[in-house]
Amino acid sequence: MLDIVILGRGGQGAQTAGNQLARALFAQGLFVQTFSTYGGARRGTPVTSSLRADKNPVRLRCDITAANAMLCFDDSLLDPAFLALGADDALVVVNSAQSPDALPSLGNRRIITVDGRMIARRNNMGKVVNSALLGAFVASLGQPGIDTMCDVIKATAPAKITENIAACREAYALVADQLEGAA
């Protein structure tokens, strides 16, 4: 079972990103379950999206408490409480202009940073970072394939489809290079 938690601020697209990622993993043959919990959520407050993917239908209906991989839309949200939702060796992708060393960490969690804001701006996406972050996340995770991810974005993005896909591919290439360099 692949357990993923995405954390963002209301309005940033964490829930959309969770749904798009689920769609791409589903397109690659996995069963998925993704859900968000919010209540008095409004623009700017923290929102989490949870995603499970497995070769069998997902039966669990409880929170994810030991995620394999996590995506954080905003480095100001990266704190020990969020990191504690990951397994000890969880992969954590963070939208940040800083290097991983400058950010909080916990246990053996592997932090990867990507400057999603800069990539979004460069691709005429303004402050909308979710496609860039999805590109970075699938490069880090090794699944789903970037073409599948872009197909989903093409089918589901409400506007600026070319720009969304360009941002996704740019962030993917950046992180893939970074990981290859490190290997």
């Binding site: 749904n19 689920a22 589903f26 069963f31 998925v32 379950q33 993704t34 859900f35 968000s36 919990t37 239908p57 997902v58 209906r61 409880c62």
Partner: peptide
């Protein structure tokens, strides 16, 4: 949420 907002096949 666990069912109402769970997106599944």
């Amino acid at each position: 949420f666990y069912v109402s907002h769970a997106v599944e096949p």
